[in-house]
């Protein structure tokens, strides 16, 4: 009955000979669901050690881009390379080996309802390592300590936790296998300002503690400015002309305020701008 443990992907000679190779490379990639275009001709390179913030309006495809990077969604066109490997062309076993190198903090934490906190954090360790129960318990306690959760939460079910605690358990679970690439999907959404800052600090602390590359999807400009080295802004395809690029900003966060693009300044200042006009036009057309 015991499942075989899958060893993390070993570094081959090809992998190790180029330390400057970017960890994530997206080449001319498009994603379409049925007739709906979500991402169009995206090209993006994330070097090792960088923390990239992906910002943009709701529905512009930030989460889809992040899920495509780890192979949860297959691109309709183009390539997504993780450490040189095209995930869409890998078999189940090789894909599993590569995914052990990721940590993903989901928007609602996506903790397993049927398991308690300890079982949730221990899940990747039990799946992919041959560690004893004692060792796993010790690692779980360490990870919970890193995210500031007491030992008393070990036996609580996700339904008994607050939003901030669930996010922290999700972060502890994502960090369980010491990932090389951490992906955060709106880590501060739905949290109070203090808890949002706690999560931001945890992202920074994780980066200091582990040599990790991070991609943070967020609407929260405070988070984007605080945790990232680089900000990329996407714009919804529905509001673009056919040849317009979807990535409208790609620079360090310090250059956000200097941007001449009205769409960027509106977003960072939280101004409705044309959206309000569009809503009025839509309402008028319905009345007519």
């Amino acid at each position: 009955m015991a499942a075989k443990k899958i060893a993390p992907a070993e570094q081959t000679d090809d992998d190790t000979d180029d330390p400057h190779r970017p960890l994530v490379e997206v080449r001319d990639m498009s994603v379409q669901f049925g007739r709906q275009h979500v991402l169009r001709d995206i090209s993006l390179t994330v070097p090792r050690g960088q923390t990239l913030a992906l910002i943009g309006e709701s529905g512009c495809g930030k989460t889809v881009l992040m899920k495509t990077i780890i192979g949860l969604i297959h691109p309709t066109k183009g390539d997504v390379l993780f450490d040189g490997a095209d995930l869409s062309k890998l078999g189940d076993k090789e894909l599993t080996r590569q995914r052990i190198r990721f940590g993903f903090l989901f928007q609602q934490a996506a903790l397993f309802d049927s398991m308690n906190v300890e079982q949730n954090v221990a899940f990747p360790l039990r799946q992919h390592t041959n560690k004893t129960l004692g060792e796993i318990h010790r690692i779980v306690l360490e990870r919970l300590d890193e995210v500031g959760l007491p030992e008393t939460t070990l036996h609580k079910k996700p339904a008994e936790l607050s939003g901030g605690m669930r996010k922290r358990v999700g972060l502890a679970r994502a960090l369980a296998l010491d990932p090389e690439l951490m992906l955060y999907d709106e880590p501060t959404t739905g949290l109070d300002p203090i808890m949002s800052d706690v999560i931001n600090e945890l992202i920074l602390r994780t980066r200091k503690r582990y040599p990790v590359t991070s991609i943070v999807v967020t609407h929260d400009m405070h988070t984007a400015r605080k945790v990232s080295d680089r900000v990329v802004m996407l714009f919804p395809i529905a509001h673009l002309k056919p040849k317009d690029p979807q990535m409208i900003f790609d620079a360090p966060p310090s250059r956000l305020d200097a941007s001449n693009d009205k769409r960027v300044t509106q977003f960072i200042n939280g101004e409705a701008g044309e959206r309000l006009m569009e809503m009025r036009d839509l309402a008028d057309s319905r009345i007519r």
Partner: peptide
Amino acid sequence: GTMRVTEQIDALSSMGAN
């Protein structure tokens, strides 16, 4: 279905569990 909607199935995949 609930696991799909609450991204728990995606979480399984992201942790290398098929």
